[in-house]
Amino acid sequence: MTTSAVPAPRTQVTRKDVARFAGVSTAVVSYVVNKGPKRVAPATEAKVQEAIRLLGYRPNAAARALKLGSTETIGLIIPDNSNPFFSSLARAVEDAAAELGYALLLTNSDGNLAKERRNLRNLAARQVDGVVLSSVLFEPDLAELEFDDIPAVLLDHDADTPGFNSVGVDRVTAAKSAVEHLIGHGHTNIALAMGINTGNFMDGREQGWLQALTEAGLPEGPIVRSFFTRDGGYTAGQRLLASANRPTAIFASSDMQAIGVLRALREAGLSVPEDMALASFDGSAEAEYSWPALTTVEQPAQAMAEAAVAALIGARRGEKPEHRTFPTQLRVRNSCGCH
Rank of each mutant, 00 (worst) to 15 (best):
V179L: 06
D110F: 09
L54E: 10
M256S: 12
F227P: 01
M194H: 12
F281I: 10
A216W: 06
A46Y: 01
L68F: 09
A103L: 09
L330W: 05
V153W: 03
T71H: 07
L133Y: 04
G208C: 09
D129F: 03
N112I: 00
A143I: 12
L265Q: 11
R15F: 01
Q238F: 00
V224L: 04
L294N: 15
P292A: 13
A8I: 02
A125E: 02
R331C: 13
N119M: 06
Y57R: 02
V13P: 08
D170H: 13
F147K: 15
A114N: 14
G269K: 14
M194L: 15
L330Y: 02
R316A: 10
V167Q: 06
D149C: 07
Q329W: 04
T295V: 01
L113G: 04
L262K: 05
M194G: 14
L120D: 08
A277Q: 04
G111H: 05
V224F: 05
A311I: 00
R246D: 03
T161A: 15
W209F: 11
S25C: 08
G269S: 15
E220K: 13
A216H: 05
Q257N: 10
V33W: 02
N108F: 12
G314P: 09
F164T: 03
M202Q: 11
N200H: 15
L278M: 04
T328D: 09
K176T: 11
V167E: 08
L241M: 06
Q211H: 12
A175D: 01
L100M: 10
A301I: 01
S88C: 06
E286I: 12
S25A: 05
R126Q: 13
A293S: 15
V332T: 12
N83W: 03
Y102I: 00
F85Q: 11
E94A: 05
Y31R: 02
N122Q: 14
E180T: 08
V48N: 10
S109F: 02
I77W: 12
D275C: 09
S4W: 00
P247E: 09
G168L: 14
A62Y: 12
G318Y: 05
G75D: 02
R239S: 10
